[in-house]
Amino acid sequence: MTVTTSDAKVFKNAIKSKVKTWHSMPFTSMDEAVNFVNLEPAQQAGEVCFSHTPDGRIELMYFL
């Protein structure tokens, strides 16, 4: 399953906690991944990593 901008805010709010942990989520495009990273609370320097997958998706690892 890939995540779209419309789903991103719901997912980000669902995983907020007092203890930050690393998460991974696939996106259909870099724009979708960037939109997710910039939602409140926006990730800080060193809290996100992008990777392109062979099928063209963007795999996002983020600390939240």
Rank of each mutant, 00 (worst) to 15 (best):
Q44A: 05
Y62G: 00
M25A: 14
N35E: 12
I15W: 04
D55H: 09
A45D: 07
Y62E: 02
L39A: 02
N35H: 14
M30Q: 13
N13P: 01
S51L: 09
P41Y: 00
T2W: 12
T4A: 11
K16S: 08
K16G: 10
D55S: 15
E47S: 02
S29I: 07
T53Y: 04
Q44P: 00
Q43K: 13
F50I: 04
S24C: 07
M25N: 12
V37W: 03
L64G: 02
N38Q: 05
W22E: 07
A45P: 00
H23M: 04
L39P: 02
S29P: 11
T21N: 09
S51F: 09
F11L: 13
D7S: 12
K9D: 09
T4E: 13
T53L: 14
K20W: 03
T53G: 05
T21P: 00
S17P: 02
D55V: 12
M61K: 11
T28V: 11
A45H: 03
L60N: 01
Q44L: 04
R57N: 15
I15F: 06
T2R: 13
A8F: 07
L60E: 01
P54Q: 10
A8R: 08
P54K: 13
I15L: 13
R57I: 02
K18N: 10
E32P: 00
D55K: 15
D55T: 15
V34Q: 07
T2L: 11
A14F: 08
E40C: 00
M25K: 12
V48G: 00
K20P: 03
T21C: 07
F63V: 06
P54A: 13
R57L: 14
P54Y: 04
E32H: 09
D55L: 10
C49E: 12
L60K: 01
P26G: 12
T53R: 13
F36C: 03
F50E: 09
M1D: 15
T5H: 01
D31E: 13
I15S: 07
H23N: 12
N38W: 00
D7C: 06
E40Q: 03
S29F: 08
V48I: 02
A14V: 03
T2D: 14
T2I: 15
K16D: 05
T5K: 14
Y62T: 06
L39T: 02
T5N: 09
